[in-house]
């Protein structure tokens, strides 16, 4: 770390540049969200008159009230919660069950399996073969299409393998001598030691399932759509919100605040949980970068 004894003019100039860049970066990151909140809370009149900037004009909760009356928004939100919870659970189980044996270099075939995993990161089946596989397994149009194909992400798997490799082997050997098998060593000894890695990988999976929309687009029926696909469809106009009974002049501008309200509600869990969990987000990057 550079120590700051330098009080020259150039150092002061550097400080000005640094703080300017930092404040600018902060604003750039935050302003889009503030603008969305502002749009979602503003009155249609203020939006149509181009008066809404970063502070909401004519504050009202009409947009939020409206989206909560749309059954398809509720359903999509519920679907996303379902995909995120079950998807993350399945993915964590599968990843741990594969990563733990893969971390034991003395197992026969361990090296080949590891190579197999890494190769599949570099060369994948491609869109069409994957699509045809899912449909020939009759998963198309079922919720499993959002869960099963993504049960193991190779990057997350390697994070787990590296983590397990770094654990001390002595406890395990002692347990083995006591006649405890690996089936009980894993849940009773290894998993309690691995909460940080599980939290990191679990978060990556949860974010993936929460944000996924494309697989919903190609595999699912409308009723099974996740909230991100719902949002995409109202943004590009594939799906028209609300019913025609609402006043026609209002719909165009109300839809702007409604879109913003959907953006905010669908991103809220990530924004709210983020400050508490952010230390886990970074961990994976540092663990994962030291792949052997």
């Amino acid at each position: 770390m550079p120590k700051v004894k330098d009080t020259s003019a150039s150092s002061k100039a550097l400080n000005v540049i640094i703080y300017a860049v930092m404040v600018f970066s902060l604003l750039i990151c935050i302003i889009p969200f503030i603008y969305m909140v502002s749009l979602s809370l503003s009155s249609p009149k203020a939006i149509i008159n181009n008066q809404v900037r970063l502070i909401p004009k004519g504050i009202n909760f009409e947009a939020y009230r409206q989206i909560f009356t749309y059954p398809n928004f509720f359903r999509a939100y519920g679907n996303t919660i379902f995909y995120t919870i079950t998807g993350t659970f399945i993915a964590l189980c599968m990843t741990i069950l594969f990563a733990y044996p893969l971390s034991k270099t003395y197992l026969k075939g361990q090296k080949i399996l590891m190579k197999m995993v890494i190769f599949s990161m570099y060369f994948a089946g491609g869109l069409i073969p994957n699509y045809l596989l899912i449909s020939s397994l009759h998963l198309t149009g079922t919720r499993f299409a959002m869960l099963i194909p993504f049960a193991i992400n190779q990057f997350n798997l390697i994070i787990m393998v590296n983590f397990f490799k770094a654990l001390p082997q002595e406890i395990e050997e002692a347990a083995l001598i006591d006649g405890i098998g690996y089936f009980s060593i894993l849940p009773r000894i290894i998993l309690p030691l691995s909460t940080a890695a599980i939290a990191t990988v679990g978060l990556y999976y949860a974010v993936f399932f929460w944000n996924d929309w494309f697989n919903g687009l190609i595999y699912l029926n409308t009723k099974q759509y996740p909230v991100m696909l719902f949002l995409r469809n109202i943004v590009n106009g594939t799906m028209v919100l609300g019913d025609s009974s609402s006043a026609s002049t209002d719909t165009a501008t109300l839809s702007i605040s409604i879109k913003s309200a959907v953006i905010i509600t669908s991103t809220l869990p990530i924004i709210v949980l983020y400050p508490f969990l952010q230390k886990y987000f970074v961990k994976g990057l540092t663990v994962g970068s030291v792949k052997g």
Binding site: S25, L26, C29, I30, P32, F33, Y35, M36, V207, W210, N211, W213, M228, L229, L231, R232, V235, K259, I263, S266, T267, I270, I271, Y274, P275, Q278, F281, V282
Partner: peptide, 17 residues
């Protein structure tokens, strides 16, 4: 902390915003 938050926002949301 704030600078890497956008990494976890859905692409759909980024494009919508």
């Amino acid at each position: 902390t704030i600078s890497y938050m956008p990494r976890f926002i859905s692409t759909v949301v980024v494009i919508a915003m």
